[in-house]
Simulated scan of single mutants.
Amino acid sequence: MPTYCRTFPGHVEQVGCARRWAREVLTGCSCAGDAVLIVSELGTNAVTHTTSPDFHVTIHRARGSVTITVTDHGGSTTAPHLAKPYDHGMHGRGLAVVTTLATDVRFTRNAHGHEVAAHLASEVPAC
Protein backbone atom coordinates (compact mmCIF):
# COMPACT_ATOMS: atom_id res chain seq x y z
CA MET A 1 0.00 0.00 0.00
CA PRO A 2 1.24 3.53 -0.63
CA THR A 3 3.34 5.71 1.63
CA TYR A 4 3.37 9.47 1.11
CA CYS A 5 6.08 11.76 2.48
CA ARG A 6 6.50 15.50 2.47
CA THR A 7 8.65 18.01 4.34
CA PHE A 8 7.25 21.42 5.27
CA PRO A 9 9.13 24.53 6.43
CA GLY A 10 8.93 25.01 10.20
CA HIS A 11 6.51 27.95 10.09
CA VAL A 12 3.03 27.95 11.60
CA GLU A 13 1.39 28.89 8.28
CA GLN A 14 2.78 25.65 6.80
CA VAL A 15 0.51 23.59 9.06
CA GLY A 16 -2.40 24.55 6.79
CA CYS A 17 -0.41 23.33 3.78
CA ALA A 18 0.22 20.02 5.58
CA ARG A 19 -3.50 19.73 6.35
CA ARG A 20 -4.50 20.31 2.71
CA TRP A 21 -1.88 17.84 1.48
CA ALA A 22 -3.09 15.17 3.95
CA ARG A 23 -6.71 15.72 2.90
CA GLU A 24 -5.70 15.21 -0.73
CA VAL A 25 -3.63 12.08 0.01
CA LEU A 26 -6.47 10.56 2.04
CA THR A 27 -9.33 11.23 -0.38
CA GLY A 28 -11.89 8.45 -0.05
CA CYS A 29 -10.58 7.17 3.26
CA SER A 30 -13.17 6.92 6.04
CA CYS A 31 -10.75 8.24 8.67
CA ALA A 32 -9.55 11.20 6.57
CA GLY A 33 -11.15 13.83 8.82
CA ASP A 34 -9.52 12.45 11.95
CA ALA A 35 -6.21 11.97 10.15
CA VAL A 36 -6.18 15.57 8.89
CA LEU A 37 -6.86 16.82 12.42
CA ILE A 38 -3.97 14.70 13.71
CA VAL A 39 -1.63 16.11 11.04
CA SER A 40 -2.71 19.60 12.11
CA GLU A 41 -2.14 18.98 15.82
CA LEU A 42 1.22 17.26 15.39
CA GLY A 43 2.43 19.79 12.84
CA THR A 44 1.45 22.65 15.13
CA ASN A 45 3.38 21.04 17.98
CA ALA A 46 6.44 20.63 15.77
CA VAL A 47 6.53 24.32 14.83
CA THR A 48 5.49 25.83 18.17
CA HIS A 49 7.39 23.66 20.66
CA THR A 50 10.71 23.21 18.82
CA THR A 51 13.20 25.28 16.89
CA SER A 52 13.22 22.76 14.06
CA PRO A 53 13.68 24.40 10.64
CA ASP A 54 11.08 22.03 9.19
CA PHE A 55 8.76 19.14 9.97
CA HIS A 56 8.29 15.93 8.02
CA VAL A 57 4.93 14.18 7.56
CA THR A 58 4.60 10.57 6.47
CA ILE A 59 1.21 9.01 5.73
CA HIS A 60 1.09 5.27 5.22
CA ARG A 61 -2.16 3.85 3.88
CA ALA A 62 -2.74 0.16 4.43
CA ARG A 63 -5.77 -2.08 4.23
CA GLY A 64 -8.06 -0.90 6.98
CA SER A 65 -5.62 1.57 8.54
CA VAL A 66 -3.66 4.79 8.21
CA THR A 67 -0.49 5.69 10.07
CA ILE A 68 0.59 9.31 10.35
CA THR A 69 4.10 10.15 11.50
CA VAL A 70 5.32 13.69 12.14
CA THR A 71 9.02 14.24 12.74
CA ASP A 72 10.90 17.38 13.76
CA HIS A 73 14.59 18.08 14.29
CA GLY A 74 14.32 19.06 17.93
CA GLY A 75 15.55 22.20 19.53
CA SER A 76 13.39 21.62 22.58
CA THR A 77 14.29 20.59 26.10
CA THR A 78 11.15 18.47 26.47
CA ALA A 79 9.69 15.54 24.58
CA PRO A 80 6.09 15.36 23.36
CA HIS A 81 3.85 14.36 26.26
CA LEU A 82 0.26 14.52 27.37
CA ALA A 83 -0.39 17.58 29.48
CA LYS A 84 -3.28 18.48 31.70
CA PRO A 85 -4.58 21.78 30.31
CA TYR A 86 -5.82 24.58 32.46
CA ASP A 87 -9.62 24.82 32.51
CA HIS A 88 -9.72 27.90 30.30
CA GLY A 89 -6.25 27.62 28.77
CA MET A 90 -5.65 27.85 25.05
CA HIS A 91 -2.99 25.13 24.95
CA GLY A 92 -2.38 21.61 26.20
CA ARG A 93 -5.12 19.66 24.45
CA GLY A 94 -3.47 18.69 21.16
CA LEU A 95 -1.93 15.36 22.12
CA ALA A 96 -5.03 14.47 24.12
CA VAL A 97 -7.06 14.95 20.94
CA VAL A 98 -4.58 12.81 19.00
CA THR A 99 -4.69 9.98 21.55
CA THR A 100 -8.49 10.08 21.55
CA LEU A 101 -8.75 9.81 17.76
CA ALA A 102 -6.00 7.26 17.19
CA THR A 103 -5.99 3.59 18.13
CA ASP A 104 -2.30 3.82 19.02
CA VAL A 105 0.14 6.72 19.49
CA ARG A 106 3.91 6.42 19.92
CA PHE A 107 6.27 9.18 21.04
CA THR A 108 9.98 8.90 20.28
CA ARG A 109 12.76 11.31 21.18
CA ASN A 110 16.27 10.85 19.87
CA ALA A 111 19.40 12.92 19.29
CA HIS A 112 17.89 14.42 16.15
CA GLY A 113 14.45 15.44 17.40
CA HIS A 114 11.02 14.00 18.02
CA GLU A 115 8.75 11.61 16.20
CA VAL A 116 5.07 11.06 16.92
CA ALA A 117 3.27 8.25 15.13
CA ALA A 118 -0.51 7.86 15.26
CA HIS A 119 -2.31 4.79 13.92
CA LEU A 120 -5.97 4.94 12.90
CA ALA A 121 -8.31 2.17 11.91
CA SER A 122 -10.31 2.79 8.76
CA GLU A 123 -13.66 1.31 7.88
CA VAL A 124 -12.71 1.21 4.21
CA PRO A 125 -10.69 -1.99 3.59
CA ALA A 126 -8.73 -0.48 0.68
CA CYS A 127 -7.80 2.71 2.51
Rank of each mutant, 00 (worst) to 15 (best):
T3K: 09
C5A: 10
T7M: 08
P9M: 11
G10I: 02
V12T: 12
V15T: 08
V15D: 02
C17V: 15
C17M: 12
A18K: 09
R19H: 10
R20E: 13
A22Y: 06
R23G: 08
E24F: 11
V25K: 11
L26S: 01
S30E: 11
S30M: 09
G33N: 11
G33V: 12
D34M: 13
D34L: 13
I38L: 03
S40T: 14
L42R: 13
T44N: 05
T48A: 02
H49C: 03
P53G: 01
H56I: 00
I59P: 00
H60N: 06
R61W: 01
G64L: 06
I68Y: 08
D72T: 06
G74E: 03
S76T: 09
T77S: 12
T77G: 08
L82W: 15
A83M: 14
P85M: 11
P85W: 13
P85V: 09
D87L: 12
H88D: 15
M90I: 14
M90R: 15
G92R: 14
L95E: 12
L95N: 12
A96M: 15
A96H: 15
V98A: 08
D104F: 07
D104L: 04
V105R: 04
V105C: 03
R106F: 02
A111Q: 14
G113Y: 02
H114D: 10
E115F: 04
E115R: 15
V116E: 05
H119D: 01
A121F: 11
A121Q: 14
A121M: 10
V124Y: 06
